[in-house]
């Protein structure tokens, strides 16, 4: 149902695990079920770190704050448990897994999501083919090793394929648009919108630098992140304003604060 809170981030602070480098500096954010949120912000402001911390990347240490997902504290959970609870991260830089085919990988993932119950291989095959068709992917792609030798655009499309197969309730999409050409952007955006039609409760958090993605996947809320914090939140107009003005004003405030 739309309107119920699905993700509540309170005062989230995180640093690089084995370095004295703080990246998230007390971040607050609340997402309701079925909403689309976009986070924009300058390079290095901590957007990807936020996404990875939400997914449980072991390279970061949370030093304060809480993350409540559907009433559960996720900071205590392993990445696989977060996935099984319904979270998904489409990576800004997807990882290559040589020798492991997409089909094999996704079969193992879907099986892990199902738990004890044995996966029906025919059903899985149908699901995979249906989602590949949705994203206009050649079925032969399923036998290729995950991201190994993929072009930038192919990697991004493969992220969304995984998302479509795993059907998360919360999708974090980190710069899925970068690396996609105009046609591919449209295909991928249509895919995401189709998934939301099938499951209106699916909540999406987009990280992007460009308005052009937001023309296809229309956000309800746009947040600006600077220096590890949300500094402004508003409606779609915030993105348009940033497109016009850039982050200049935020940089000035930052500089003033630093003095």
């Amino acid at each position: 149902m739309s309107g119920t809170p699905i993700l509540k981030i309170r005062n989230l602070q995180a640093k690089v695990a084995d370095e004295d480098l703080q990246i998230l500096n007390g971040l607050d954010l609340e997402l309701n079920s079925g909403e689309i949120h976009a986070i924009m912000g300058p390079n290095g402001s901590g957007k990807s770190t936020l996404a990875k911390v939400l997914m449980g990347h072991p390279g970061y240490e949370v030093t304060a704050g809480s993350v409540d997902f559907n009433g559960e504290e996720v900071l205590e959970m392993e990445p696989d448990e977060r996935s099984q609870a319904g979270m998904f991260l489409a990576f800004q830089y997807p990882v290559e897994i040589p020798g492991v085919s997409i089909a094999n990988f996704l079969r193992t993932a879907v099986q892990a999501h199902q738990g004890e119950e044995e996966l029906d291989l025919f059903e899985f095959q149908d699901l995979l083919m249906e989602k590949m068709a949705l994203l206009e992917m050649d079925p032969a792609f399923a036998e290729r090793p995950v991201n190994d030798g993929f072009s930038g655009g192919e990697k991004k499309r493969n992220e969304i394929l995984q998302m479509a197969v795993l059907q998360p309730s919360l999708a974090l999409m980190d710069e899925t648009d970068s690396g996609l050409d105009i046609d591919a952007l449209q295909v991928v955006s249509n895919g995401v919108n189709k998934l939301r039609e099938e499951n209106p409760d699916m909540t999406v958090l987009l990280i992007t630098h460009y308005q052009r993605l937001l023309n296809y996947i229309k956000p309800d809320h746009v947040h600006v992140m600077v220096d590890g914090k949300i500094v402004q939140s508003g409606g779609p107009e915030v993105a348009l304003q940033l497109e016009e003005e850039g982050y200049k004003s935020w940089r000035e405030i930052e500089a003033a604060q630093a003095d």
């Binding site: 449980g56 696989d80 990882v95 897994i97 892990a112």
Partner: peptide, 22 residues
């Protein structure tokens, strides 16, 4: 991390990487 973020427990993720490698 990539594999675990798709729901694979650590041991399974490790196995998959090793199998793929070999």
């Amino acid at each position: 991390f990539y594999l675990m973020s798709r729901g694979l427990p650590q041991a399974k993720a490790e196995r998959l990487v090793v199998l793929g490698f070999l």
